[in-house]
Each structure stands twice: as C-alpha cells, then as structure tokens.
C-alpha cells in the first residue's frame, strides 16, 4: 500500500514538472510527426503501399521516441542530483522506480495520442481498438525496461550511446509481437493471441525490473 502511494507521488512529481516546463511532450510530438515525414521520403509512399508500410513506420517512430522519453526520465534527476535525495528517504527503490516508469509511460502514451491519429491521417490506415491496445500494452513493457536501463546509464559515461545499445535488443519481443498485432489489426484480422502474449511479456518484465530496480538504484 505504502509502495503504491510512493510510486504515485513520484509519478505525480514527474508529471507536474513536465506540465510546468512543457519540454518533453511537444518535442516528442514533433519528433514523431517528423519521423512520418522522413518515412514518406525514405519509402516513396503512395496510396498503394502506405497501408503495408504503416505498421513498420509506427514501431520505428515509437521505439526511437521511447528512447528519448526514457532517457529524459532520469536526466533531470541527474542534473539536479535529486535522485540521491530521493534514495536517502525511507522510500523503497522499487517504489521510486515504479513511479518513474509510470510517469514515463504516460508521457509516451501522450505522444502516441499524436502519433496514431497522424498515422491514420497521413497513411490512411484504420485505427481500431486492437491497434491502440497493442501499442499501449507494448508501452508498459517498454517503459519498465527503458526506465531500468535509463536509471543505469544516468550514472555512467557516454550514457546517450549506451541506452540504445542496452534497451533496443530487449525491446525486440514487444516490437515482434506488437508488430504482428498491429499488422493483423490494420489488415482487418483478429489479434487475440498477440494481445495475450503482450500482456504476458508485460507481467514478466514488470516483475523482473522491480526486482532488479534495487540493484540499479540503491548504490
């Protein structure tokens, strides 16, 4: 109970600070729209191939936006040395970690609220419940893994280099399963199995990362 209230307090702190500065979300929203523009030139998109290419563009934009979002999650704490202050309190590291991950996941979800309609508009794909649920389920798992490694690289040299190297390989399961689900949903078929698998992966990584958070944060 206490863990949950601490996690919510940390998440609220992060979201309040983002609301006051409004740095990350506008930049990420522009970033994802720009990704669509670059994809248009890279793939020579026309009305015939747009629907086939759209799922790939969605995951590329999402993965790289996620790297930026989760990298920022601990950047402010590092700049102000406020992470040490939080760790000196009696709050369990797992609760602090959960709060950071929750806030980062919500911020990425806001970017998805820009990315998905933009994708529907520019690529002419249908946005169904299945597409949205697959993307949101993948966001949860990506957020916990991304925040774990962001917390780690915040304390090492060359952090901008190390975060993608560590995070992207472990995100691959979400891209594989989520990609299949989105492809199926955009093509109009059912995604039941893929959604269940995404949920399993989320549970696995939420448990593993909260066990590992102690070793990464408490130091």
């Amino acid at each position: 109970m206490r863990t949950i209230s601490i996690a919510l307090a940390v998440a609220r702190k992060d979201l309040t600070s983002e609301w006051r500065t409004r740095e990350l979300v506008p930049a990420l929203a522009q970033f994802v729209v720009l990704a669509l523009v670059i994809a248009n030139f890279g793939f020579q998109i026309d009305s015939h191939n747009a629907v086939a290419i759209a799922p790939g563009v969605l995951w590329m934009a999402l993965v790289f936006a996620g790297l930026v979002a989760f990298g920022r999650a601990f950047a402010a704490e590092r700049e102000q040395a406020s992470l040490e202050a939080m760790l000196l309190t009696a709050a369990p590291p797992a609760a602090i970690f959960a709060g950071k991950a929750l806030a980062a996941a919500l911020l990425l979800a806001i970017c998805e609220a820009v990315l998905l309609p933009a994708l529907a508009l520019f690529f002419g794909v249908r946005l169904s419940f299945d597409v949205v649920s697959a993307v949101l389920l993948a966001t949860v798992g990506m957020a916990v893994l991304g925040c774990l490694f962001a917390a780690m690289v915040a304390r090492v040299r060359a952090r901008e280099l190390l975060l993608p190297v560590l995070t992207l390989p472990l995100w691959i399961p979400f891209v594989v399963v989520g990609g299949q689900a989105v492809q199926a949903a955009m093509g109009g078929s059912v995604t039941g199995q893929a959604t269940g698998l995404l949920l399993d992966l989320d549970i696995l990584f939420v448990v593993l990362t909260s066990l590992a958070a102690r070793f990464v944060l408490d130091d």
């Binding site: 780690m152 090492v156 190390l162 190297v165 560590l166």
Partner: peptide, 14 residues
Amino acid sequence: IIYAGYLMVRRLAE
C-alpha cells in the same frame, strides 16, 4: 548485440 552491450557497460560504468 546484448552481450556486446554487457562488455560496453563494463567499460563505461565506474
């Protein structure tokens, strides 16, 4: 790539 990342962590962390 994962274990190449492992070796990078070793070099870059304190």
